[in-house]
């Protein structure tokens, strides 16, 4: 006989049985835990349900607070914070970053659900670059300087040509128009599963969730009541143009006739972030367009200004 034998049948059976029992014990426990159930043995066996908060921002160095307790600071690679073990209830979430306006929100956390938040962090001040109408071009071999029209300026102005020739309502193409009430036309924009439209007569913005199923993002619901669509903003001055903020389906940028360009969160749970990006002193109308990935182009009379928006 050999001193070193194969693993015995008995040992193998014990292993197999042990691992099988472990499988049948572990699997339901892990599944329940993953669903948000927690088990406790303080006085007697208690099962409680938990929910979660997920905060994601691409701006590094952002401190995430939950009920005024610092939970995490984001970095270049670590752009998110997830707590999936908190009791259902109302929480106050803050995102703080130097140089940005503090973002804060009261949110409801429900059992087995995660409330996702994408803080809308905007700089304390927007820096604009004015695009000059003309540029100086020195002639080769002489001291003479030619004055020429700036091609960049021309390109940006061309973005607004159609707008100057027509009214806002004329801008709306057939496919953009929907009727929400008889006789009323609206401007609408769709980004992913979110549709936002502006009602000119009522001077208010609506948001609607379009995705399949009966799911609604948490900001459609308050105190257990969900409304789809809902009004998220009323304006006092007529809107001349609006669009989604670059890369976001929960923030819009809009220009109003009184001479300002603003950004506002669709999520109206307090505090609904609303910022004035640009305004002129005269109160004359301004307009804007989004170009490329993140460039905001503002037309104020003959002036063209640009700024890069952070996502």
């Amino acid at each position: 006989m050999l001193d070193m034998k194969p693993m015995s049948h008995t040992k193998r059976r014990v292993y197999l049985l042990g691992f099988s029992i472990l499988f049948f014990i572990l699997t339901p426990l892990v599944i329940f835990y993953a669903m948000g159930y927690r088990f406790g043995f303080v006085e007697k066996f208690v099962v409680t349900e938990r929910g979660g908060v997920y905060v994601q921002t691409s701006i590094p160095g952002t401190d995430i607070y939950l009920d005024d307790e610092l939970k995490d600071t984001t970095g270049i690679f670590n752009q998110e914070y997830l707590s999936q073990s908190i009791k259902p209830g109302r929480y106050f979430v803050r995102a703080v970053n130097e140089g940005y306006r503090t973002w804060e929100k009261y949110v409801q956390v429900d059992a087995q659900r995660v409330t996702s938040l994408y803080p809308f962090l905007v700089p304390e001040e927007f820096e604009f670059e004015e695009i000059l109408q003309v540029v100086e071009k020195p002639q080769q071999g002489t001291t003479t300087i030619d004055i020429a029209v700036n091609d960049v300026y021309k390109d940006f102005v061309s973005l607004f040509v159609l707008a100057e020739a027509t009214t806002t309502k004329d801008l709306i193409t057939a496919s953009d128009v929907i009727d929400i009430e008889e006789g009323q036309d609206v401007i609408k924009r769709v980004f992913g599963d979110v549709q936002v439209w502006y009602d000119e007569d009522e001077q208010q913005f609506y948001v609607e969730w379009l995705a399949r199923g009966d799911f609604l993002p948490s900001y459609f619901c308050e105190n257990g009541e969900c409304i789809n669509p809902f009004v998220f903003l009323k304006v006092t001055s007529p809107v001349t143009h609006f669009d989604f903020y670059p890369g976001r389906d929960d923030v819009i940028i809009f220009a109003v006739e009184n001479g300002s360009v603003n950004a506002v969160e669709v999520d109206k749970r307090p505090q609904q972030t609303s910022v004035e990006i640009y305004s002129n002193e005269s109160g004359a109308p301004v307009d804007f367009r989004l170009v490329g990935r993140d460039t905001l182009v503002i037309k104020d009379g003959e002036k063209i200004l640009t700024t890069e928006l952070e996502r």
């Binding site: 948000g36 929910g51 999936q84 087995q112 659900r113 995660v114 399949r212 199923g213 799911f215 993002p217």
Partner: peptide
């Protein structure tokens, strides 16, 4: 579904 995506699971 979005409903599932928003679950703790």
């Amino acid at each position: 579904s979005p409903q599932f995506k928003s679950s703790v699971l």
